[in-house]
């Protein structure tokens, strides 16, 4: 059966992609941020996972408000980068793990999650940025295949944090019941604290961000028990998307090894952080 080897959490701020496109990653403003990803890049290069399940949200680049799936699973063979207002970014298309994606959809439905099933869609910075942060920008093809899980974290009602945690547990069941010798990682994206709208725009909460980066490893059940209101109040209106990390954490074992964590504030208007969690007893 397939193996889950670890989980990664990261911010997915669009300006990170812009910084990479403009070659700004070694400038004084950006270097501290990008340097924080090197240990995770080394881990990825060493572990070479076959499939990455990436939990993220579309920011109205591929989906509009005419229909808003709470959960959607990409079952395509290929995903092109979306045009977010200045043309698609110059990165290779992502290769989909369609066979596993359909198995995931089966598993979800059998366990009372009923996602939208997507066959053709473009992916925005929410997925592009985490992939590039952990895998680097490939010249021709990405060295990993992906399964995108789209979560509505923008139009209310958004799903409960506990529901996302449970989705992660179901994702694990799908991986462990998948007849394959492939290795998997789960990537939770978004956050950390930021607010882009209203008179509270520019809100940041570095203390809460740092606590979250610790608690996601050791006290995930507590974080899953928070209300959506608590997430919005603590991390800001847009920072509340951090609940998507709970899918990643829910997929992992109760006890995990913290391989690396990193935090910089701000990247653009956002508390920017990452964590690399490894499954125990793998050696």
């Amino acid at each position: 059966m397939a193996r889950l080897i670890g989980g990664l959490g990261t911010s997915h701020v669009p300006s990170i992609g812009v910084a990479l496109d403009k070659g700004l990653d070694q400038t004084p403003e950006w270097k501290p941020f990008f340097d924080g990803y090197r240990p995770a890049q080394a881990w990825i290069a060493e572990q070479k996972p076959d499939v990455a399940v990436v939990v993220f949200n579309d920011h109205y680049n591929a989906l509009f408000l005419d229909r808003v799936p709470t959960f959607a699973v990409g079952c395509a063979e290929e995903y092109l980068p979306a045009d977010e207002g200045w043309g698609p970014r110059p990165i290779p298309p992502f290769r989909g793990a369609a066979d596993f994606a359909w198995h995931l959809v089966d598993t979800l439905v059998e366990r009372w999650f009923d996602p939208e099933v997507i066959q053709e869609i473009k992916v925005d910075h929410g997925l592009q940025v985490p992939m590039e942060l952990f895998w680097g920008r490939p010249r021709e093809a990405w060295p990993v295949r992906i399964v995108p899980i789209f979560v509505n974290v923008l139009q209310y009602p958004v799903p409960l944090p506990s529901r996302l945690y449970h989705l992660g547990k179901t994702l694990r069941a799908a991986i462990e019941s998948y007849d394959s010798d492939e290795s998997f990682v789960v990537v939770g994206t978004g956050g950390l604290s930021h607010q882009l709208q209203g008179a509270r725009a520019g809100f940041l909460n570095p203390d809460a961000d740092r606590r979250f980066l610790e608690d996601i490893a050791t006290r995930p059940e507590e974080l899953a028990g928070w209300t959506r209101e608590q997430y919005v109040e603590t991390f800001g209106a847009e920072g509340a998307e951090l609940i998507m990390w709970l899918v990643m954490r829910g997929a992992l074992s109760p006890e995990v090894l913290v391989r690396h964590r990193h935090y910089v504030v701000p990247a653009s208007m956002t508390g920017a952080g990452m964590v690399l969690l490894e499954e125990p007893d793998r050696h």
Partner: peptide, 24 residues
């Protein structure tokens, strides 16, 4: 604490969705 009463924090809830649909 409710979503509608967090100060200075507009969310894309039902009233905003309906009101902003054309603009969006």
């Amino acid at each position: 604490l409710t979503l509608a009463t967090i100060p200075d924090t507009p969310l894309l809830d039902r009233p905003h969705q309906l009101r902003g649909y054309r603009l969006n």
